[in-house]
Amino acid sequence: MGLSFKHKMRSMLYVLIGTAGTYSGICIYKGDETYYRKFLMPFVRVLNPETAHNLAVFASEYRLIPKSQYQDDSALNVKVFGKDFPNPVGIAAGFDKDGRSILGLKDIGFGFVEIGSVTPLPQSGNEKPRVFRLSQDMAVINRYGFNSEGHAEVLKRLENVRHNAEVPIVGVNLGKNKLSEDPIKDYVEGVQTFGTVSDYLVVNISSPNTPNLRSLQNKENLKQLLKAVVAARDSLNVNPKPPLLLKLAPDLSYEEKKDIAEVIKEKDCKVDGLIVCNTTVQRPSLNSDHKNEVGGLSGAPLRDMSTQMIMEMSLLTNGAVIIGVGGISTGKDAYEKIKAGASLVQIYSTLAFDGPPVVTRIKKELVDLLEKDGYKNISEAVGKSVKQ
């Protein structure tokens, strides 16, 4: 009797495990957002944040996450930098630092992928722990410090993926080595290395986790830097030349923003667009543990700060092309940035809380908002809050 009862209980347990596994597999295949948000992502968040990040990169690299079944609505198709984006929602730099997950990220539904930041020489970044979840605030603090495999390794990976017909629009975010004595040289090398294999390049001088990096945003430093990287880009033996973007910090004063707007209007310093914005060192009212950790804050607390800065930079630059990033987790968040002047948007932190299905949800909500306001295409909404 005892053995029979144990056998029955074991069999029942196997059935339950099998049923749960089958149900989970179906939910993952369908991209069931409720399942991800209520069951799978809370389970993932049991892991150390950096371990969870590495797991997500691994799953994307080997394309273990099923492809999104959502077909992008034509209202989301947009042309920027002379390139046709299937939708305006991209993945921000920082997720795929070394170009491992480009095809897997396209599977999820991103309209474009930005890799990096990539430094000339390999470097390990700051000591661990260096990334912290603030679950109560839907936010993340990181101080990775440009951990990178370096130009050579990332270039080989990008050259290999370029042969794949499925490759999306790819931007490369350039950084400097922590101990570099000549940061301008680092960025020029980045332009020369990736200029022929990327769809756009980003000069990232706004991370708070590399000493003295943000000082390159100062007017005179910025002039020297941009003259060098623009000249390097213009001398590339490729046509068309890759667009060059500048990524800014949200912690700039209004006068500093005005200075930047003036510099990028100069002929020798003229970039093709801005990414607004990077993480913040400010600490608005937060409720989570780790709220006082050193590093850059991203996620929901950055949302309004980012949107306001997009509007300011759009006005100061007379409508420069802007990629808006910071605190986006809904279609409404993305739409507000688009109406503030962003032609494209990027997400990152929300993936840690909502998982891959958030990409499809944002796109669906964007389509609904466009239809509600009578726009036939996303480009018609760009900057509407600024122009009113």
Rank of each mutant, 00 (worst) to 15 (best):
S215L: 11
L225H: 01
N218G: 11
V191S: 04
K227P: 00
N237L: 13
V170N: 08
L201A: 09
I205K: 02
V188I: 11
K227A: 05
I205D: 01
N218P: 01
V203A: 13
Q224L: 10
V188E: 08
N173Q: 09
Q224D: 07
G195D: 04
S206M: 04
S235E: 12
T196R: 14
L179S: 13
T193E: 13
G171Y: 08
E166M: 11
K185S: 14
G190K: 09
I184S: 05
N237F: 07
L213T: 00
K185Y: 12
P183L: 03
L179P: 00
D234H: 05
P208T: 11
N177E: 04
S198R: 14
Y200S: 01
R214T: 06
V172R: 14
V230Y: 04
V203L: 12
P208K: 12
N177F: 06
T193G: 10
S180I: 05
S198C: 08
V167H: 07
N204Q: 08
R214P: 04
Q217W: 08
G175C: 01
T196V: 13
L226I: 00
S235R: 14
S180C: 07
N173C: 10
Q217A: 05
A231Q: 12
V230A: 01
Q192T: 13
A228M: 10
T193Y: 10
S235F: 01
G175I: 03
S215T: 10
V202L: 05
V229K: 00
V202T: 15
K219Q: 14
K227T: 02
V170M: 10
V172P: 13
L174H: 12
D186T: 06
V172F: 12
D234T: 03
E189R: 14
V229A: 00
K185L: 14
E220P: 00
I205E: 02
D182P: 04
V230R: 08
Y200N: 02
E220Q: 06
L236H: 03
A231N: 08
A231E: 11
V191L: 05
A228D: 09
A228G: 06
L201R: 09
I184K: 03
T193F: 11
K219A: 08
L216E: 02
L225T: 00
V203W: 06
Q192L: 15
N237S: 14
T210F: 04
P183M: 09
N212W: 03
P183Y: 08
S206Y: 06
E181T: 13
Q217F: 02
K185Q: 14
E166V: 05
L216Q: 03
K223A: 02
F194P: 10
G190Y: 13
I169W: 10
R233K: 15
Y187F: 15
L201Q: 07
N173W: 10
D199T: 11
S198A: 15
V191H: 04
Y200Q: 02
V202D: 01
S215Y: 06
T196C: 13
K178G: 01
I205R: 03
G190F: 11
V197D: 08
N177V: 03
Q192P: 04
V203E: 10
I169F: 09
T193Q: 12
E220A: 06
K227Q: 12
V203K: 10
V197T: 14
A231M: 03
F194E: 04
S198I: 07
E220K: 05
D186S: 07
V170C: 09
Y200F: 15
A232K: 06
V230G: 01
S235G: 10
V167K: 15
I184L: 06
S215H: 06
V230S: 05
E181L: 12
E181Q: 13
L222Q: 00
N218S: 12
